[in-house]
Amino acid sequence: MEEGAIIQHDIKKAPKTGNWRYMKPEVDKEKCIGCATCVPFCPEAAIEMKRGQGQKKAKADIDYEYCKGCGVCAEVCPVKAIFMKK
């Protein structure tokens, strides 16, 4: 065991909190205006702005490995481009 329980960050050891979900946020890439309001409010920092193929503007993209399905992103989205699905 690590001496003195002094440990180092290792993302491979991170619990995949995505399996906490019972609701799943879905981003409507058309409606999303790329304002990134949701990004800093996500408690899991699971949202990145990504440009899909052939799209000029980066849109919200959720990392479902860590998203816990809390729904904060859907709540704060100014254009209601994110909706929660069972």
Binding site: M1, A5, I6, Q8, H9
Partner: peptide, 14 residues
């Protein structure tokens, strides 16, 4: 450059 965490939580298994 070598960040460490002192004082984690260790439960029944460790």
């Amino acid at each position: 450059d070598n960040p460490v965490t002192f004082g984690p939580v260790a439960l029944q298994n460790s």
